[in-house]
C-alpha cells in the first residue's frame, strides 16, 4: 500500500502519531460532555422500545444498546432532518392510533405486531409515508446507529484510511457495507 503508513519518508514528514494523540486530547472533553448530557435527558420508554425493535441486538449490539435514543433526543433538539421537536409526540399518537389504545400498554407479541404493521403500512405508498412521522424517526435511528462506534465498525466495516481505492472487488450477499463510503452515506443537500 502506498503512502504514509508504509513510507518512511512520509512518516518522517508528518510525525502523524504525535499529531493524532495531541488532537484527540483537545477534542475529547467537549465531545463527551455533549453526549453525556443527551443521554441523561432521555428515558422515554416508547423511543427506547422503537429503537430496540427497529435495530435489535443480534451478533452485534442494537440501537438501544448503543444509546440511539440519546442521539435522537439530540437530533430532535437541533432540527435534524427539518424536525421541529414535536416528532415523539406525533409518533406516540400514530402508534396509539394503530394500536387502538395505548400502544405501550399492549403486551408482547401484540405490541411488536402493531409496530410491524405500522411500519409496513407507512411504506405501502408514497402518500402514507409522507403523512407519517415514522420515516424521519426511522432515518434518525439509522443515522444514530450507523455513526455509533458499534454500528459503524462492528456491524459495518469501518476503514478510515483505505490507502487506495479498489474499483472492482467480488461481492457476495451478506458482506458488510463500508460505513465510510462517502457517496453512499452522505446527503449532499444537508440533514
Amino acid at each position: 500500500m502506498p503512502g504514509i503508513d508504509s513510507s518512511d519518508q512520509a512518516q518522517a514528514l508528518i510525525g502523524r502519531r504525535d499529531f493524532i494523540i495531541g488532537l484527540s486530547a483537545i477534542g475529547a472533553m467537549s465531545i463527551w460532555s455533549q453526549i453525556g448530557k443527551a443521554s441523561t435527558e432521555n428515558s422515554d420508554p416508547l423511543l427506547n422500545y422503537i429503537c430496540d425493535k427497529t435495530i435489535p441486538d443480534t451478533e452485534t449490539p442494537g440501537a438501544l444498546a448503543v444509546n440511539v435514543p440519546a442521539f435522537i433526543s439530540l437530533a430532535l433538539g437541533h432540527a435534524f432532518c427539518n424536525t421541529s421537536g414535536d416528532e415523539l409526540r406525533r409518533l406516540r399518537e400514530e402508534l396509539d392510533q394503530a394500536a387502538g389504545g395505548a400502544f405501550m400498554s399492549l403486551s408482547e407479541p401484540q405490541r411488536f405486531s402493531v409496530f410491524f404493521q405500522y411500519d409496513a403500512d407507512c411504506f405501502s405508498s408514497f402518500e402514507s409515508s409522507r403523512r407519517s412521522v415514522w420515516p424521519v424517526i426511522k432515518k434518525l435511528i439509522l443515522m444514530g446507529y450507523y455513526t455509533s462506534e458499534t454500528g459503524a465498525s462492528k456491524e459495518l466495516q469501518y476503514t478510515f484510511t483505505p490507502g487506495s481505492f479498489k474499483a472492482d472487488l467480488p461481492y457476495k450477499k451478506g458482506d458488510p457495507a463500508q460505513a465510510t463510503d462517502f457517496f453512499a452515506t452522505t446527503d449532499f443537500i444537508g440533514y
Binding site: 435489535p56 411500519d119 411504506f123 405501502s124 456491524e155 463510503d181
Partner: peptide, 19 residues
C-alpha cells in the same frame, strides 16, 4: 455507488432481518 444505510429510511422493515 452502492446505496448505503440511508436507504433504510425509505423502505419497510424492522427487526433482525432489516438489520
Amino acid at each position: 455507488f452502492r446505496e448505503g444505510y440511508p436507504r433504510g429510511a425509505k423502505m419497510k422493515g424492522v427487526g433482525a432481518s432489516f438489520k
